[in-house]
Computed example of a mutant assay.
Amino acid sequence: MLEVHSGHSIGQLLRTTLDEHSLSMRKLSELTDIDTATISRIINDKRKATLDHLEKFSTVLAIPLTTLLQASGYSVDPENDSTIVYDQTIQQLVNTSGLLSADISLSQVESQLVEYEDYVHTTEGKQRVVYEFTKKLESAGGVGPLADQMKKLFNRFKTQNGNARELAIIGSALLYFIVPIDVIPDYLFAVGYLDDAVAVQIASSELMKNS
């Protein structure tokens, strides 16, 4: 996961992230569906990023939404973790995407990850990760910090670099990405992979606790 330095403005944070991953503002525009000129103004601190902008940046750049909110000057409760923020973000994005009747919450992502932890212990689950991950990543575009993060997790899983618990956590996040049954359908551009990004961040947090 990207190491984010505290005290940076949203412009500094985005500029540093793009440099580290060799991404241009034009490419970020393509990935987020945000106009390049708007991204330029945000990066140069000439306009305030909206919640919608930050949600898309969080998804594509794999930066915690709370970090982006703080860098943009929004009030974030320091006693509150990212769980509620992501919960609200998922629901807001689904609502604006026309799925008004969907009951989307972070708990659904977490529940699915638990199920996949059991599945990844089976031969079928392991083989599915090994043989289907690359194809799914290519179909999703395969670029950006989230893709880089997932590639690292996949390489670690493929080489069995970790104990049984760590590999189960990694495998669950990869299966969440691979299996087409998501909390948010993947075909929804700039929205469909938000829950996959959340799943990866949940897994990364669990790995840190187990390290």
Rank of each mutant, 00 (worst) to 15 (best):
L2D: 12
H8C: 13
S9G: 12
G11T: 08
Q12I: 07
L18I: 07
D19I: 11
E20Y: 00
S22D: 08
S24V: 05
M25K: 09
R26L: 04
K27F: 06
S29W: 06
L31Q: 10
L31R: 06
D33W: 15
I34P: 06
T38Q: 12
I39W: 01
I39K: 03
S40H: 13
I42L: 04
I42D: 00
I43E: 01
K48R: 10
A49W: 09
H53V: 00
S58D: 01
T59D: 00
V60T: 08
I63R: 01
P64A: 01
T66G: 02
G73L: 11
S75M: 09
V76R: 04
T83S: 15
T83F: 15
Y86P: 03
T89W: 07
Q91Y: 09
Q92R: 15
T96G: 01
G98V: 04
D103R: 14
S107M: 10
S107V: 06
V109G: 03
Q112R: 08
E115W: 15
D118E: 09
V120K: 00
G125H: 08
Q127W: 13
Q127H: 14
R128Q: 14
R128P: 05
E132I: 03
E132L: 13
T134H: 14
T134G: 05
K135I: 12
K136T: 13
K136Q: 14
K136S: 04
L137F: 02
E138D: 06
L146V: 05
A147K: 03
D148G: 14
K151S: 02
K152S: 05
F157T: 01
K158D: 07
K158A: 08
T159N: 12
T159W: 15
Q160W: 04
Q160S: 12
N161D: 12
N163K: 13
L167N: 06
G171S: 11
G171P: 11
S172K: 10
S172I: 08
L174E: 01
L175D: 08
Y176N: 03
Y176T: 04
F177A: 02
P180Y: 01
D182W: 09
V183S: 02
I184A: 01
Y187H: 11
G192I: 03
Y193T: 04
A197H: 02
Q201S: 10
A203C: 08
S204R: 09
S205W: 14
E206M: 12
E206P: 07
L207D: 08
K209T: 08
S211D: 10
